[in-house]
Design a protein around this nucleic acid. Structure first.
Lengths: 309, 309
DNA sequence: GCTAATCATTAGAGTTCCTTATGATGTGGC
DNA sequence: GCCACATCATAAGGAACTCTAATGATTAGC
C-alpha cells in the first residue's frame, strides 16, 4: 500500500528516468544496480503498474504511461520533501518561525524595540506577535503551559514549572513634577500628600503598595491607571508623586523629574520565562539570549543618571 | 536521512497530533502503541528534533514547535500522496490521461469523430492530440517505437514489432461525375481516359497503382493530390475518374457518384496498431476497443449503398 | 494513597532490504 | 555469424529494520 511509499522509491524512479539506466541510477544514489531494480519493482507492485518497459539486451528502459504519470507526481512530492527539509533547517538555525511573546508595557516600550530589531536582523522573515499580559498575575504562565505563547516576562520570583533567565534589577524611583525642589523623595513625607500610580490589581502597583505598607505607610492615591504614560502625565500636571520602576518611566518627559527615594525601595526583579515542560524553539532560545544581553546593557546604563538626581 | 522518510511516518505524526495520544493513534492506524512510539521516534531522529513534548503520566503529548512545523509539511505531503493515488486510480480506470494518435485523412474524417465522442463520454477530462501520419509509409511505426505516439492506424500488413487489432476491409470504389451513365466502371476502359487520384508517394495511391499494374493497365493521371476532397472535387468538375477507398469518399457530394469497379479491386485492410514493446495505457486500450467497434459498424453500413450503385 | 492512563523500553520473531554472484537477453562490431 | 559487452532480473544470504507482547516508569485525579 501507499503507506509504505518512501522517498527512496521516488528517488529511484526519478534517477532511472533521468539517467536512462538502472545501473547509472544506482551509481548516482549510492546503491547497487540490484537494489535499484528491487526498489523500482517494489514501487511497481505498490502502484500496480509497470513503470518502465525494459527491453532485454543493452537498450534503455523507457517510461510507461503510468511511469510518466507517476514521475510527475514524484517530482512534486520530492520538491515538497526538499522544501520541508529546507524549512526545518531554517527552523533549526532559528532564522525562521513564529514567536508569540507575552509582554507588558515597560518591556514593550524599553526592551522589545532593541531586542526585536536585533532578532529581525539575524532572522528576517520570522513572524512575531505580542500578547499583553498586563493584569495577569501569573505573567502568562497558564498561556505558556498551554502553549499559546512561547515566552513571557516575569517580575520577582519565577514560579515552578517555568524555566527562566534573570534579566536584572529595575530600581523603583519617584517621579515628581519638574518644578519640584531637588533631592531624594523622603517616603515618610508622602503620608499626607497624594500619590499617583498603578491600580492595586496591577502587579507593579501591588509591589509598591506592599513595600510602603511594610514601612508603615498607607498610601493615598489621587489617580490610578494601568497606563504608565497617563500616570507620568498626571505627575507632570501636579496631581502628586508616583513611585514606579525606572523602566516604566519615559525619561524624555520634561514636565517630570526622576528622584531616588529615601529609603530606597527594593528593585523590581525581571526575568524572561518559558514553560519547563515544553521544548523551546531555537528562535525562542535565541530571542531570550538577545533579550538578556539587551537588558544587561539597558539596566547598566540606567543606574547612572538616576543616582545623580 | 530524509530518503528513508515514508508515508507511514507522516501518518503517525498526523494521527498522534489529531488523536491526542499515541495509543489512540495506534488504534486508528492499526498498529500497537509501541509501534507508533517507535515510528515517531524514528521520525524524530530523522528530522533531528523532538516532535512531541511527552509529560510522563496520564497527560497528552503536545506538539513541539518543530512538530507543529513538520505537521504542516506532512499535511501537504499527505495531500500530495493522496492526489497521486487518485490520479493513478483514474489512470488505471482509463478515465484520465493523455493520448497521442497517429492518423490520416479518411480515419480522421470518418472514424475518429464517432470514436472520440464515445471516448469523451466515458472519460471526460482526457487530453487527445492527433498527429498526421500522411506520406509516412511506416504509418508512424518509428514514432510508436519511440513513444511519441500511443496508437496509429495502418493499411495492409502490420509490420513486426507492432501489436494490432484488425478493423476491417475498406473496399476500393470508382468515383465518377454525377452525370455519368450508371453501371460499374470497367477498368480496362480507363486506359485511354485520364485518372484523378493520390500521388505515388501516398500509400493509398500506391496501392491502387500496383493493382492496376497487376491488371496490365498503366494509369495516366490528370491530377494528383493528397487531399481527398480535392480529388473528389476534380472528379465532379469532369477531370476524370478516381479510384479510392470508400472511407476516403465524401458520400454527400452531389456532383459525384460512387460506382463499383469491374473487376473488383482488393479492399484496403485497416488496423489500429501500437508498439509491441511498450505497455499501452488503459486509456489507449479502451480507445482501440472503441475504434474496433466503431469501424465494424461503419464498414458494415458502407457495403450496402455501394453495391446498389 | 490508589487507580488508571500515559509513553518508553526491552526482547524476540518476522520481515525487509541490500550486496554479491549469476543468469538471460539482445546489440553492435568485426 | 559470432563474440564481447551492456543491459536488467533473480537467487541467496546476512544485516538491519520493524512490529508485537510484555513490562516499567511516571503522574493526574479521585
Amino acid at each position: 500500500m501507499w503507506s509504505e511509499l518512501s522517498t527512496k522509491h521516488l528517488l529511484a524512479l526519478r534517477a532511472v528516468a533521468e539517467e536512462g539506466t538502472f545501473g547509472r541510477a544506482a551509481e548516482r544514489l549510492g546503491f547497487t544496480q540490484s537494489a535499484i531494480s528491487q526498489q523500482v519493482a517494489t514501487l511497481e507492485s505498490m502502484v500496480g503498474h509497470s513503470l518502465f518497459d525494459r527491453r532485454s539486451g543493452p537498450s534503455r528502459p523507457q517510461l510507461t504511461p503510468a511511469g510518466t504519470l507517476l514521475l510527475e507526481h514524484a517530482t512534486t512530492l520530492l520538491d515538497a520533501v526538499e522544501e520541508a527539509e529546507r524549512s526545518l533547517d531554517r527552523f533549526s538555525r532559528g532564522v525562521s518561525g513564529r514567536l508569540v511573546i507575552g509582554t507588558f508595557q515597560s518591556i514593550s516600550a524599553r526592551v522589545l524595540p532593541a531586542a526585536l530589531r536585533q532578532l529581525y536582523e539575524e532572522a528576517p522573515g520570522i513572524e512575531v506577535s505580542l500578547v499583553d499580559e498586563e493584569q495577569q498575575h501569573d505573567f502568562g504562565q497558564a498561556a505558556l503551559l498551554r502553549g499559546d505563547i512561547d515566552l513571557s516576562f516575569a517580575i520577582g520570583e519565577v514560579s515552578d514549572g517555568l524555566d527562566s533567565i534573570y534579566l536584572g534589577a529595575d530600581p523603583h524611583v519617584a517621579i515628581v513634577a519638574a518644578d519640584c525642589p531637588p533631592g531624594p523623595v523622603v517616603l515618610e513625607s508622602l503620608s499626607g500628600s497624594p500619590l499617583v500610580g498603578q491600580p492595586a490589581d496591577d502587579s507593579c502597583g501591588l509591589i509598591v503598595d506592599r513595600q510602603l505598607e511594610r514601612l508603615g505607610l498607607t498610601p493615598h492615591y489621587s489617580f490610578r491607571s494601568h497606563d504608565n504614560g497617563a500616570v507620568q502625565a498626571m505627575v507632570g500636571a501636579g496631581m502628586g508623586v508616583a513611585l514606579m520602576p525606572l523602566l516604566s518611566v519615559n525619561t524624555n518627559d520634561t514636565r517630570t523629574s526622576i528622584r531616588t527615594t529615601d529609603p530606597v525601595l527594593d528593585p523590581r526583579q525581571l526575568s524572561i520565562v518559558w514553560s519547563r515542560g515544553r521544548t523551546p524553539s531555537p528562535l525562542a532560545k535565541r530571542f531570550a539570549a538577545i533579550v538578556a544581553s539587551v537588558c544587561a546593557e539597558l539596566l547598566a546604563q540606567l543606574e547612572l543618571p538616576d543616582v545623580t538626581a
